[in-house]
Design a protein around this nucleic acid. Structure first.
Lengths: 330, 330
DNA sequence: CGCGTTTACGTCGTTCGTAACGATA
DNA sequence: TATCGTTACGAACGACGTAAACGCG
């Protein structure tokens, strides 16, 4: 059993049992992986994958157990490498962040700029995606951290660093009938108009749907997008009332769009940074986290990320307390 | 970085930074380990050990972190091998148990006989030792499990399976003055005579000493031994009153020795099986555990030993409830 | 001078890539 | 026929052990 064999094994598992594709991902040749897989299976005396003909069909129960442990091993090995790089005060490397559009476009830029300033030789890769995709990337270890939001508790199985709380606001053209209602708009009034919001609003357990369901109404979602800029475009086009994150509001939006805060209508969201357990982060990744979440002391961060001694994270700030309110009616 | 390098690294650490000795333990040559250590250090770009001249002096802080993770890795690798052997229903292997003399002599024999009957091809190694040595062996991964007892909670950092509860009894020659006192002997009466007990009684935080300290007396320990048979010998020789585990009483002891139960004088002891976390046990090791601790269902055992889902262990039986009482006065 | 580490060197095993082959949809 | 996995083979590398040299107590 070698580390290489285990790395190949999980690569094959992660590539959906396609050895050729797995070989590309680990920068090796397909026969190499085939042979190493066979060697591993010979040594352990059991098949990791069930075969039909020559191609891999499914992961065997035994294989699943082995893969699970193999992941831990390569995780720890990667941690050793990261640890060594940290000890050498190496300031080059990669930082792969998967996140939603709103975070990438409106929240992360200052933190990334700061990071680039402190660590100019770090390559930052931003990967946009929906929540499920982010978790999948994190699980497959293709990213260092995922940054995502939610109204309830964060997904388990990862370390979740609370970054900040935020509210949703509504947005409509100046000419929209709802502008005459005044400052305090209700959910039932909102239910009268088509809405434009994030893709996640289509999920039946989204906080938006649940809020409407609580008063026995259902929102009419005219269209959805992952992209806050697209939502604004459709709102401007008159497709409906936009519901989006307060971070997404730019000063110039106020020129032609009417904003309203609806803090009491929808639950507060929290943005988390998700990190794999037992994965040691590079120095610059820690710097990035504490740059994004200033309530967390930089030097306490390593201990907080250690799953063995679960130090509690401090309560996050509210976005508004740091960046001011975008709400004329609050 | 290879698994071999990591194995060599922890071997060197465990051998007290003596590469030659480490080489013997891993069945390799000393230059081989030297070179692999150097390669690892070169690749990681940092020294695992500080050198003075040509010999290793101490573990560097970075080295300690690496070794810690390396241990996890070889642990997981070992688990994969064990898992594979289990899946193949292989019934050969080694079971290395470190335990105290009392357990080995009076408690384990039936369980070991049963194990040998079920798995005739398993080699069982029993290693006697004091509590500290057992923990050290367990930490160094030279044994599969440690079986030891205590009155308070078990040592942390390991999985502790409670096996059974037991009491201490006192033992003296027929001619001893205390035999006239009657059934209810008190601590202050005991304090009048020299005692013979286990080595652990010399420790200032032993439950024996603490029990005496609670009534502001100190026991006079005439002599101590790890070995219950030795304690009996010295009691027979008239050196003092023996205090030992009720499991250590044999029927023939009643012929020339007087026994008394002192359940209310000293706290109840619990015997635990200690297992390393994240270490997968072989099938026969699980069979041994459930043979020793019948209150634990065999099929629930794997889940209970998984540190991720801490299933509670059932409360252990009392020794007496399974094996009858050795006490004339109870 | 003994103990322990390093260096040097030759051998052996293993890994890896290229290329050809085979099976499958 | 395109795709994917296996087999074959040769080259290169790396690991290992033996033997000798080096420092240190």
């Amino acid at each position: 059993m070698t580390l290489t064999q285990l790395r190949y094994l999980v690569a094959i598992a992660d590539a959906g049992l396609n050895i050729t594709q797995a070989a590309e991902r680990v920068f090796a040749t397909q026969p190499g992986l085939s042979k190493q897989l066979r060697h591993l299976e010979d040594e352990l005396g059991l098949q990791m994958f069930s075969r039909s003909g020559r191609s891999l069909e499914a992961v065997t129960p035994a294989g699943a157990l082995v893969i699970e442990r193999a992941r831990k091993i390569i995780d720890e090995a990667e941690s050793i490498r990261a640890l060594a790089a940290n000890m050498r005060h190496e300031s080059t490397g990669e930082l792969r962040i998967a996140t939603t559009h709103t975070q990438a476009r409106f929240v992360l830029p200052p933190a990334i700029a700061k990071l680039k300033h402190e660590f100019p030789d770090v390559n930052i890769h931003l990967m946009p995606g929906g929540d499920a995709e982010l978790l999948e990337l994190l699980h497959r270890d293709e990213i260092d951290m995922a940054i995502m939001s939610g109204t309830s508790s964060p997904p388990s199985g990862y370390i979740a660093v609370p970054v900040f709380d935020w509210e949703r606001v509504i947005m409509m053209p100046n000419t929209h009938p709802l502008t005459d209602v005044g400052d305090d708009i209700t959910l039932s009034q909102l239910a009268d108009y088509p809405l434009v919001s994030y893709e996640s609003a289509t999920s039946p357990d989204s906080s938006l749907r649940k809020a409407f369901a609580a008063i026995e109404l259902a929102p009419r979602i005219a269209c959805t997008a992952r992209d806050a800029d697209l939502i604004k475009t459709y709102v401007r086009a008159g497709l409906g009332v936009g519901i989006l994150a307060e971070m997404a509001i730019l000063p110039e939006d106020r020129a032609d769009l009417e904003l309203r805060c609806i803090d009491n209508l929808l639950p507060t969201c929290t943005t988390w940074i998700l990190v794999r357990q037992d994965r040691l982060l590079r120095e610059y990744a820690l710097a990035f986290i504490s740059g994004l979440a200033p309530q967390i002391e930089r030097k306490k961060l390593p201990r907080m990320l250690n799953p063995d001694e679960p130090d509690q994270f401090p309560a996050p700030f509210h976005w508004r307390d740091l960046h001011g309110s975008n709400c004329p009616n609050s």
